Amino acid sequence: MRSLFVIFAIMAGVLTSQAQATTVEEGDTFTLQVPENNRFAYVGVPKPNILIKRGSVATAKSLNHRKVVVKEVIREDGQIRLVLEATDGRKFFRHYRTLPASWPEAVNSGELKPVR
């Protein structure tokens, strides 16, 4: 009887944690994580040539472990897009106030990590 209760408790915990990870709302906080190849696939970081033309340093190191907040959630055509803003109020690459991201792909790939 105890083992049945333990199994039920574990399954309830797993299902609850999965349900929380599948929703996003305005005001949720995440941390940016630079992928191993230094190229974001699901967070809309401008290409290096665009950054260089605008006079910025074209390196993703400045984004690593940077906290961002969801400013807007856009739901259209069955896809969810996020508008991310830095929690410290600074611009990304000295020119961009916000960055777009695809939900849930950015979290599944590890580019965005939820702050708990």
Rank of each mutant, 00 (worst) to 15 (best):
I7G: 10
V14M: 08
T29N: 14
G27I: 05
F5D: 12
R81C: 05
Q20V: 00
T16M: 07
N38Y: 04
N64A: 01
A12M: 10
N37Q: 00
Y42K: 01
T87F: 07
E36M: 15
L4Q: 10
T22V: 14
H95R: 00
P48F: 04
K53R: 09
A12E: 08
P46G: 03
Q20C: 02
A106I: 02
M11V: 07
T59V: 13
Q79R: 13
A101W: 04
L84M: 09
V6F: 12
L32Q: 08
T23I: 02
N37Y: 05
V73E: 04
D88G: 12
V43K: 02
G78A: 12
L63P: 04
V107H: 06
P46Y: 02
V24D: 09
Q18E: 13
I74Y: 04
V70D: 11
A9H: 01
N64H: 15
R116H: 10
V6Q: 08
Q20R: 06
V24H: 03
P104L: 11
L63V: 15
Y96L: 14
A21W: 03
E85V: 03
Y96F: 13
A101V: 14
E25S: 11
G13T: 01
P46S: 09
R66I: 01
T87Q: 09
K71N: 10
G55W: 00
S3F: 11
A41F: 11
Q20K: 05
N38L: 00
R2C: 01
V45Q: 02
V34I: 03
A101K: 07
E111T: 14
R66D: 05
L51K: 08
W103I: 07
A86Y: 11
A101Q: 09
T31M: 05
N49P: 00
T31R: 06
D28P: 10
S3T: 15
A9V: 09
T16V: 09
L4T: 15
I7Y: 08
